[in-house]
């Protein structure tokens, strides 16, 4: 279903662009801009390394933009980032205590050598609207973008430990497969400015706010500290979405590109 919607948006975008090409001046006739930009900001939550370290979010964006109207660019982007995800949860399960003949709840926690790793690849489609007094691709703009995010979460499935009351020892345990893929989407809003140097080089800078709706809900609901072991996949999904939400929340961006044709 999501794929169908994406295709529809792309098709509509291209159709509307085709109709309006004749009116779009571009920059000295050049309408296609290819470039790289980096979205970055300090990461106050969910650091990439050890639990208490401050982190830094950075997203690599490869952009292709086409001027479809005098003040509008149709934008496509491919974005990727990699980050660690801190896991706060403990997983609970019950185990039989042979000495008492009763069941007792035990707690497993993640004590890995590395935090969980999240790799996200996003495909984006959006529009840049240049403000009054500017003509695409020069000047101040506002950009709206829809990102379809494909995330891969890896962790050390054998990195879980629990205290075994039967043996009074800490025992290793395995949870899940160690590799999960999740999909979600984000909406971003950017305000920025573009300059063109030497009639070819495009400098793009500004700031961006973004919302990953699913991540927002996960964040609002808060992380459950007490999670049943059989619900671990949901926890990973929720952690991923929360991380994505925080990653997209606010970023500065700086990019360079060139006017192709």
């Amino acid at each position: 279903m999501k794929t169908t919607i994406t295709n529809l948006i792309l098709a509509l975008g291209l159709l509307s662009a085709g109709e309006l090409f004749a009116q779009a001046p571009g920059y000295m006739g050049k309408k296609l801009t290819l470039g790289y930009s980096n979205n970055f900001f300090v990461s106050p939550f969910g650091p990439t390394a050890a639990a208490d370290d401050a982190g830094f979010n950075t997203t690599h964006c490869f952009n292709a933009e086409y001027t479809i109207k005098s003040k509008t660019n149709l934008c496509f982007s491919f974005q990727t980032f990699e980050t660690g995800v801190r896991m706060n949860q403990e997983f609970h399960s019950t185990t039989y205590i042979s000495s008492t003949g009763e069941y007792q709840e035990i707690t497993s926690s993640y004590v890995p050598t590395l935090p969980m790793q999240l790799r996200t690849y996003s495909g984006g489609i959006g529009f840049k609207f240049f403000t009054s007094g500017s003509l695409a691709p020069v000047g101040k703009y506002k950009k709206l973008e829809l990102l379809i995010m494909f995330s891969n979460l890896t962790y050390d499935r054998n990195g879980f430990r629990y205290y075994d009351p039967n043996t009074s020892k800490t025992v290793k345990t395995s949870i899940g497969t160690g590799d999960y893929n999740f999909k979600t989407f984000a909406l971003t809003y950017t305000i920025g400015r573009q300059r063109v140097f030497f009639n070819t080089i495009v400098l793009d800078y500004g700031m961006q706010v973004g919302v990953v709706p699913v991540g927002l809900l996960a964040t609002l609901n808060g992380a459950e500290d007490f999670v049943q072991l059989n619900g671990y996949e949901d926890v990973f999904r929720s952690d991923t979405n929360q991380r994505l939400f925080r990653y997209q929340l606010f970023n500065l961006h700086l990019g360079l590109g060139f006017l192709a044709f």
Binding site: P25, Y27, M28, G133, S134, N199
Partner: peptide
């Protein structure tokens, strides 16, 4: 009408 410096690229556009 625009706000900002009268940069060459703006004028060119």
């Amino acid at each position: 009408y625009s706000r900002g410096r009268d940069n060459k690229d703006l004028i060119t556009s």
